[in-house]
C-alpha cells in the first residue's frame, strides 16, 4: 500500500549514488524484496515507472528478487524457512510463528527487508 513512497526512496537512493559517482545514467537497479514485506512488486514496478520519467533512471531496468521468510527459534536453535499452515476450512495457507521443530515461538530473521542490492551505472 505504500509502494509509491518506497519507489520514491529507492529512486532517491540510487540518484544519490549516481551523483556521488558522476554517472550520467542508471542502467539497472537490482532490488531485493522480502516475501513478508508488505510490498506488492507489481505496484512497486508501476510506481517506479511513473517516478523515473525525466530522471537519469528513466531507461533503467528494475530487477526484483524475492527474499524468502526465515525464522530462528531461541529455544531449540532451529533456523530455516517460515512454517506455512494449511487452513482446511477456507483452503488457504497462512504463515505461523510456530517452530516447525519444537513447537515454540520463533522470531522472523529474514523476508521482511527491502533493499537495493546493486546498481549498474553509465559514466
Amino acid at each position: 500500500m505504500h509502494e509509491l513512497s518506497m519507489a520514491n526512496s529507492i529512486i532517491e537512493t540510487v540518484l544519490n549514488e549516481a551523483k556521488k559517482r558522476n554517472a550520467k545514467s542508471v542502467l539497472e537497479v537490482n532490488l531485493v524484496v522480502g516475501k513478508f514485506a508488505m510490498l506488492g512488486t507489481e505496484q512497486l514496478r508501476y510506481c517506479y515507472g511513473l517516478l523515473v520519467k525525466g530522471t537519469p533512471l528513466e531507461k533503467s531496468k528494475l530487477r526484483i528478487e524475492g527474499e524468502e521468510g526465515r525464522v530462528r527459534c531461541e529455544a531449540c536453535n532451529f533456523e530455516g524457512p517460515i512454517h506455512l499452515e494449511q487452513e482446511p476450512e477456507y483452503h488457504i495457507m497462512y504463515p505461523t510463528l510456530q517452530c516447525p521443530k519444537c513447537g515454540g515461538t520463533v522470531e522472523m530473521v529474514g523476508g521482511r527487508n527491502c533493499f537495493i542490492k546493486s546498481v549498474k551505472l553509465r559514466a
Binding site: M6, S9, I10, T13, E17, R21, N22, A23, L27, A37, R112, N113, C114, F115, I116, K117, S118, V119, K120, L121, R122, A123
Partner: peptide, 19 residues
C-alpha cells in the same frame, strides 16, 4: 575514474526499510 560511457556495477546493500 570511469571513462565517458563506461558501464560499472556498484554493490549497494542499501536497506530501504532500515531507515
Amino acid at each position: 575514474k570511469h571513462d565517458e560511457g563506461e558501464v560499472f556495477d556498484i554493490e549497494l546493500e542499501e536497506n530501504i526499510l532500515k531507515a
